[in-house]
């Protein structure tokens, strides 16, 4: 087979599999937002997040060998999940009413700027995981990197209320 005369891209193009997939997701969110609008795009991505949340929930339950995770286990699972995908969340507060998580980096990296629909993906994973185990969750994003804040602050409410998106177990 003849050798291709193509310049060496080593060190010149940084795109690896991870970056490629993040770019892909960002472009997908872009197309959705531009074509069907933010609200509908959020709906699509929420469903994707819900499916992933269900899968991860089953995984954590299997690992812990429980039928349902309790409050602390849910909080631990959320932090573990985000650490695995470079989201780096920390628990700011945990109580019977709510779990508050904060981070200073987004799993989608720079690609999240200006694309709040992508946040829906993460928050619906959180919501699904919490609601599946604690019957109800309401996700409120008080700060997000996507809309220009320096960090994300996610409040997982466990009681009914007006603010945020609700998830039912």
């Amino acid at each position: 087979m003849a050798a291709l005369s193509f310049p060496d891209t080593e060190g010149k193009i940084s795109r690896d599999r991870d970056q490629f997939l993040r770019e892909l997701l960002r472009e997908l969110a872009d197309v959705l937002e531009d074509r069907v609008g933010l609200e509908e795009a959020k709906g699509f991505l929420a469903r994707v997040g819900a499916r992933i949340g269900d899968k991860m929930d089953a995984e954590y339950r299997g690992l812990l060998d429980v039928d349902r995770m309790d409050l602390e286990q849910v909080a631990g699972a959320l932090v573990d999940l985000k650490a695995r995908i470079n989201g780096g969340f920390e628990i700011e507060e945990i109580s019977g009413d709510r779990i508050v998580l904060v981070n200073s980096a987004c799993p989608f990296g720079d690609y999240v700027h200006g694309r709040q629909a992508l946040c829906m993906m993460t928050s619906s994973v959180f919501g699904r995981l919490a609601a599946n185990n604690l019957d109800y969750a309401r996700i409120e994003k008080t700060e997000t990197i996507a809309r220009g804040d320096s960090r994300c602050r996610i409040v997982v409410h466990l009681t009914e209320g007006e603010i945020g998106r609700e998830y039912f177990g």
Binding site: G43, A46, R47, A50, G127, R128, R165, E166, F168
Partner: peptide
């Protein structure tokens, strides 16, 4: 139904 109860269609 449970997933759509969060606000989807």
């Amino acid at each position: 139904i449970i997933v759509a109860a969060s606000g989807g269609i």
